[in-house]
């Protein structure tokens, strides 16, 4: 029997008079790979920000693994198995690659552990971060300041950092945006590998080809409302989805 890991119930959010997310409900099954798609401005990133706690909900509820996190402060949420990457790269520009990855371990550290030196020598935290970089094929850059690294590499470092929190649910905001074909394949490998370890993926992505290669499930948003939830194949035949993307004239 499959269980849902993430559950959104009638989630709504307005900015000023503009209703950006309107009564959205869906569930993401444990261990699944779900894509969140929709035209520009549909509210995908806003929904991510609501789930991760950047914004507070106006109405509705969000729960992860049965735990209601609707109004939990953002810094507590990742302790309950939530981690994410960002649409625009948000690595810490003044930290090295390893330090950025080690930031992902923060939610697993205790207060006394935070006063233990991790910047001197090679201790367990450093080794763990280096191993994670190595298994993602990024072992050549540990000591470098991330601002100097290529775009595709930074994108993958973000994923590795997010994984360091040992999440149950990984939110990825346009992980393939701006990557070339080879980099996209490397990312796809990495994500499949992550999914195989039991981590549930929720991915915002524009590239439908990428989505159909990675995900079994698609949620489509348009103007802040959920208009479809099903397989990628059936999404491409759904009139409401075609209308949202292409306009009414194209719907036969």
């Amino acid at each position: 029997m499959s269980q849902s890991l993430l559950e959104l119930q009638s989630v709504s959010k307005s900015f000023g008079g503009l209703r950006v997310i309107n009564d959205v409900s869906f569930a993401v099954e444990k261990g699944s790979r779900t894509a969140l798609i929709g035209p520009n401005g549909a509210g995908k990133t806003t929904l991510f920000n609501l789930i991760s706690g950047v914004y507070d909900l106006d109405a509705g509820s969000i729960s992860i693994d049965g735990m209601d996190i609707s109004h939990m402060p953002a810094h507590k949420r990742c302790r309950f198995g939530l981690s994410r990457s960002f649409q625009n790269i948000r690595l810490m520009p003044h930290l090295s690659t390893v330090e950025n990855v080690m930031l992902g371990q923060h939610s697993r550290s205790s207060l006394p552990g935070q006063l233990f030196p991790i910047g001197i020598g090679r201790n367990r935290s450093v080794r763990e971060a280096e191993d994670a970089l190595q298994s993602a094929g990024l072992n050549t850059y540990p000591g470098q300041i991330v601002a100097d690294l290529p775009y595709g590499v930074q994108k993958r470092i973000e994923v590795v950092r997010a994984l360091m929190a040992k999440p149950k649910l990984l939110l990825l905001d346009e992980p393939a945006a701006g990557l070339n074909a080879t980099e996209t394949d490397a990312l796809l490998d990495l994500l499949t590998q992550i999914s195989a370890t039991g981590v549930t993926l929720l991915v915002v992505e524009h590239d439908m080809h990428f989505v159909s290669r990675l995900c079994q499930d698609v949620v489509v948003l348009n103007f802040g409302e959920k208009i479809f939830h099903g397989t990628p194949q059936s999404a491409q035949q759904e009139p409401a989805v075609l209308e949202a993307y292409l306009g009414t004239d194209h719907v036969a």
């Binding site: 706690g53 507590k76 003044h94 930290l95 930031l103």
Partner: peptide, 16 residues
């Protein structure tokens, strides 16, 4: 140092 660079991201990784 993370708070110095990007406090929003620091928050999302569990830093108070």
């Amino acid at each position: 140092r993370s708070v110095h660079d990007d406090e929003n991201v620091a928050t999302l990784f569990g830093i108070n």
